[in-house]
Amino acid sequence: MNKTQKWILWAVLLTILALYPIVFGIYYSNVFVTFAIFALFAVTLNLLLGYTGLLSFGHAMFFGTGGYGTAIALEHIEGLPLLPAVLIGVLAAVALALILCPIMVRVSGTAFAMLHLAFGQLMYVLALKLRVITGGEDGVGGFPIPPFSIPGILSIDMTNPLNFYYFAIAVLGLSIWFIWYFTKTPLGSVMVSVRDNDNRVAYMGFMVPQTKAIIYVLAAAFAGVAGSIYALFQNLIAAGDGFHILVSFAPIMMVMVGGIGSFFGPIMGAAIFGIIEELTSRYTERVELVMGLILILVIMFAPLGFLGFLRYIKERWFGKRPDMTTTEDVA
């Protein structure tokens, strides 16, 4: 793809995103914001799972911490502007990651997965029990949503769903782009080599625990962004949608269904889940039943996920061999 094509692609993408709410209306704009939140969340999980080979069953704790951080800050600090509120949520998630990472960078495999399940549940129980701070089961809701403002220049009302759509898509889109950029940097390539063979990485002069720590904190920070936007979007964050174990499972499922082998797989997975949820919830309340069945089918028959399946089809029917030069292939 040459430069011109790239610019055209970007222009088309941005135009679609800009026109989307006008064409599809507010209901589907909100569906899209939800999708974008989970797309970012899944991408951050894939940074650990797909790129570094670390399976986390507690990624929700960063999502939830980001959400609670923003919500509690807005509830208690009068006149707190929008971006600092998001930043507080992100910093809360980063702080949690910094506390955990001395333990987490030393383990991998099942131990890593289980420690996260354990600490994730601890956060869930704490959110339920520390009522004074977290509001217990009801969560923190109804906090003021500040306008997006540049003092003296403009102030955009964020309680207007259309305005919020543009704000959320900008923040989430930039975050995804940043992570994509990160995977292309030298540190991103050290990350992939840690997954392949962490012992050899050390014998080539790289510091494995430190590298893991940076990735871990980065994944936590952007999961915090997703959580923060989610809290603003719902004007509510509760233990059930911030810290529940299903919130940790959701991005894993998205990564698996979309395709663990690429950067865009998780985004595809988030889209597939969004569509399935939208469709099945019209007919049944048991959305998770469908999700569970799909997950089982994917693991059994398409372990490389939707993108892997597409690639297989391409190879099979069009005789095109998968391009091995692309660095997008992380699996």
């Binding site: 998770e288 569970g292 089982i296 693991i299």
Partner: peptide, 12 residues
């Protein structure tokens, strides 16, 4: 991940 799927299906 398969066991997550099974647990979801049983629960639902």
């Amino acid at each position: 991940i398969l066991t997550i799927g099974v647990s979801l299906v049983i629960l639902e």
